[in-house]
Every structure is written in C-alpha cells, then in structure tokens.
Amino acid sequence: MDLVNKLMQEGHQCGMNWSGALEPYEMPSGNDWKTQDTFMMERLGIDVVKKMRPGFIFAIFDRGADRQYSDFKSGMDNFFGIPGQGLLCDTVERSPRGCVENIMYKVNVKFGGNNNQLTENTLNSLKLLHRLFMVVGISLSHGKTKDDKAKCSYAGFVGSMDDSFLRWSTETASVVSNEALLPDISGQMERLLQTYKENVGNFPEVMAVYRDGVTHTHENELHGNDILCLRKTFTKLGITVELVLIVVNMMHRTRFFRKPNADSMGEPIYSKDNIPPGLIVDDVVVDPFGDDFYLASHRGLLGTSRPIRYHILNQRRYDQHYA
C-alpha cells in the first residue's frame, strides 16, 4: 500500500483527483496463469472489473512474466476498455528517485492529459517560417521477452495535426523481428498527411521526420528505404514538401560533464551535477563529414545524463516531378 499512497500523493500534487484506492487483488502465478480454455485475465475481469468498476488498474509483475504483461495490456485495451499501467516488482520495491513521478506522467497521458507544452515564444518562432510545418516521429519497439510466441517488432508513427503541436494522429505497422529497416510505410505516411490536411486545410510545406531505432551503421540505408517511401507518397498526393529527416540515437557511449573549477591550490574540483538541459554540442566530437550534434534535452534525475545524438540525414525539397 506504500506505493498506492505515493501514487495518490503524487497525483494530488499534479492536479489529479483520486476518489480512493481499492484493495489489492493478487492474481495466481506460474502454471495457473492459463487454464484449459480460460485466461486468468478473464477472471480478473469478472472478479475486479465488473465488481469494483475501477477507473484505472495498476498491475505489478515479476521479472520474466512477459506473457502475463502481454495479456494484461491486450485485455485492458481491447476487451475491457479500461486504462492500465504495468509495473515491474523490482521497480516497485526499489522505488528509485523519479519513479513515481514518471509513472504519473504515463497515467496522465492515458487519461488524455498533456505532460508537455511549447511556450508561446517557441510557437511564435515556428510560425515565423510563414509556412505550414508538420512534425512526424517514427520509432521501433522490439520488445524484451523470452517467450518466442510473444516476440514481435512494431513501428509507431505520430504526426502533428496542426501548428499547436498538441494534437497528434497515430499509425502502427508490424515489422520483421529485430529489424531496423521498415517495410513500405507509404500508407501510414499518406494517412498522417491526409489527417493534417483535414485539420489545417492544406498539406504541409515543410515536414520534419524524427526517426528512431536505427543504429549508426544503418543510417545511410534510410535513403533507399524511408526517404524513398516518403518521395513516393509526395508524388502520389501531387504535393511539394521540403523534407528534413533526422535520425535520433541514444545507443552510444558519449558522455559530457561540467567543466571543473579550480580550488585555492589550483587543483580541479569536479562537479557531481549533471550537464544542464538544453546543452548542444556540435563541434570537436561530432562527425567531421556529417551533419550531427548532441543535445541534452532534459534534466537527468538519476545517474549520468545521456545526451541524444541527432543526425540530419536529409534536407531537400521534393515535388511530384522529382526523380
């Protein structure tokens, strides 16, 4: 119940109105998880959902219970229609700094809330382009599971729907397990563009695509894959778009630290604080032949901050006649 109290306390501080927590429900484990024809998730629906009528469900799983977690997500999203959040038992017991706050961020999003908002100055700076601007994010999820039946990879797509960057449309696609390159994504991109046009009135003139899930060795292969699919989409819709494709990568070993100060004897004094958020490094340690930079976009709560590497792979204007 200590976790429940922490969640309720953090929720109240974030402006969430909690009407009260129900008693924990312990589910069977091991071989009892699946009977001959009935999943334990269905029993959970009978014993908990129908009787207690919760508005949100937290489920705590032991490490390695991948199938249980998969069934929980599927049951909550597709069968019961109740938002839920799965947690690892190890995480709950250790309760590292920032853990409860991070959980509440996810809960807020699942209730339709907004965790981040661009400042008025930032929005105005984007509008100074005097052009219709769209942002697209593409990410891959390979999953970490020992269950061969549950192994699969998925690609998620999000696209801004207007110039407020607060409303986003989504698309998904299944891909070959553990593959960094995507299949033909023309259909997903076309639907995102059509959604943008329905809300704004026209197709975007500038599109910034942030691509995740690609290692440094596979970045150049995106020219014959993602960029080619985007060009096909622009040609099909008969539009002219300035495309900026940025590869986002956290799988690197580059770290930055604050410059040490000197004491009275001239000896360096190293700070234990992380680098400040907003730090950009675009010289000395970057690729001399590429267009990349490192950005520390947020404050590190635990451990050493890992800056994100951004590589501007493409910045070119495409129209329906581009060959």
Results as ranks from 00 to 15, higher is better:
188 Q>N: 11
188 Q>H: 07
188 Q>K: 06
188 Q>D: 06
189 M>V: 11
189 M>A: 13
189 M>G: 07
190 E>H: 14
190 E>F: 09
191 R>V: 13
191 R>Q: 15
192 L>A: 05
192 L>N: 01
192 L>V: 09
192 L>S: 04
192 L>H: 05
193 L>D: 00
193 L>P: 00
195 T>R: 13
195 T>D: 15
197 K>I: 08
198 E>P: 05
199 N>P: 02
199 N>W: 11
199 N>R: 15
200 V>S: 01
200 V>C: 06
200 V>W: 02
200 V>A: 02
201 G>R: 03
201 G>V: 05
202 N>P: 01
204 P>W: 00
204 P>I: 00
204 P>N: 00
204 P>F: 00
205 E>N: 04
205 E>H: 03
206 V>K: 01
207 M>R: 05
207 M>Q: 09
207 M>A: 10
208 A>D: 11
208 A>W: 14
208 A>Y: 13
209 V>F: 08
210 Y>R: 03
210 Y>K: 08
210 Y>C: 10
211 R>A: 01
211 R>F: 07
211 R>K: 09
212 D>H: 11
212 D>F: 10
212 D>N: 11
212 D>I: 03
212 D>T: 06
212 D>A: 08
213 G>W: 06
213 G>Y: 07
214 V>K: 00
214 V>L: 11
215 T>H: 08
215 T>G: 13
215 T>D: 08
215 T>Q: 07
216 H>E: 14
216 H>R: 11
217 T>V: 08
217 T>M: 09
217 T>Q: 11
218 H>L: 14
218 H>A: 12
219 E>F: 09
219 E>D: 07
220 N>Y: 12
220 N>D: 09
220 N>W: 12
220 N>K: 13
221 E>C: 11
223 H>A: 13
223 H>T: 10
224 G>I: 05
224 G>K: 07
225 N>A: 11
225 N>T: 08
226 D>V: 13
226 D>G: 03
227 I>C: 00
227 I>T: 01
228 L>G: 05
228 L>D: 13
228 L>R: 15
228 L>I: 09
228 L>W: 14
229 C>H: 15
229 C>Q: 14
230 L>G: 04
230 L>V: 10
232 K>Y: 09
233 T>K: 03
233 T>H: 07
234 F>A: 07
235 T>S: 08
235 T>I: 07
236 K>S: 10
237 L>Y: 02
237 L>F: 03
238 G>I: 02
238 G>Q: 04
